[in-house]
Design a protein around this nucleic acid. Sequence first.
DNA 1: CGGATTTGACCCGCGC
DNA 2: GCGCGGGTCAAATCCG
Length: 333
Amino acid sequence: MSGDQERSHFSFPSHDELSSLVSWKPAGGATDSAGDPRGFGPRAVPPPVSLTDVLRGSMMDYGALARAFDLPCSAPSDVLAPGGMASSRELMADVGNAGNSMTPSSGCGGSATPMTPNSSTSWSSTEAAGEEDAERCKKDEPKQEEEVEKQRVKVEEEGGDTSEKVRNKSKKKGEKRQRDPRFAFVTESEVDHLDDGYRWRKYGQKAVKNSPYPRSYYRCTTQKCPVKKRVERSYQNPRIVITTYEGKHAHECPATVRGSTHLLPPPSAMSTSFCQNLVMQQMNQLNNDNSLQANINPNVYLANLPPSLQQLQLPDYGLLQDIIPSFIHGGQP
DNA sequence: CGGATTTGACCCGCGC
DNA sequence: GCGCGGGTCAAATCCG
């Protein structure tokens, strides 16, 4: 995590199968880089914002983010601009927004922790990982909530028991586990594991159905931090790295603590609004241009987008429409 | 030597 | 009820 870290730019979500769903157009020839994706060519589009920015923004308070989606357009005044990232500003400019003085936090990953070079990032909420995921996510929601709850129980109850016990304890019969919302970042990157300023420990890897690329499972190494993330590559475009975060950091960004000159606002104050605004901006714009098509056929709608917007592809269509249906459906009921 | 990664096994939920 | 697949565990291994 250092040299080959990612600096990603923020494009709109799109991932895996989703790509097929929305006619993802790879920036370049897809390279088979499952294990060692080093042959990526130069990015056609300069990264407006670091992945870290994005991550910070969404990860910090997804409860709020989730609420934001439910309640579009709440004034994002809780996010201050720490100042620091040109890229952040670029992003904001890109997003065009918004009258609100919100700037995605920067810092940790910003300059202190250079993010992945030659990469672009998009994000989605709740889930993202291909059509499988799109389908899966629906049933996964409760499942992952359970997992998180497991983690919490585990940590709270003793901070170290056998998995067996934990599982039995954390789940009472018929009791549905609460699940934190998840946010997926679709990043065009050379490396699988993007450095977002936090420290992660890999705890598992699984082969992904219909994909030659495995999915890796990471957990925040900070004690009592329940945040987990999954990382996988799109089988359709090996450049695409889908990072799905789950949980909320219960601590500050290590990179920040470690003496980065760019201090991040506390997690709770993070750019929920930033993400929210981004989504809103993107969605509104897309809707304005292609509301009808977008409603009916994402492919058409994307095809009609200007190149600059084609990067802002609708990610997990199925997911997002659940989260922010009003955007996708042109604000119609 | 301590921490991170790998990897096979296991658990669990869901769909059929 | 069964099988499948996702997610997690934990022992073994690797690495700095």
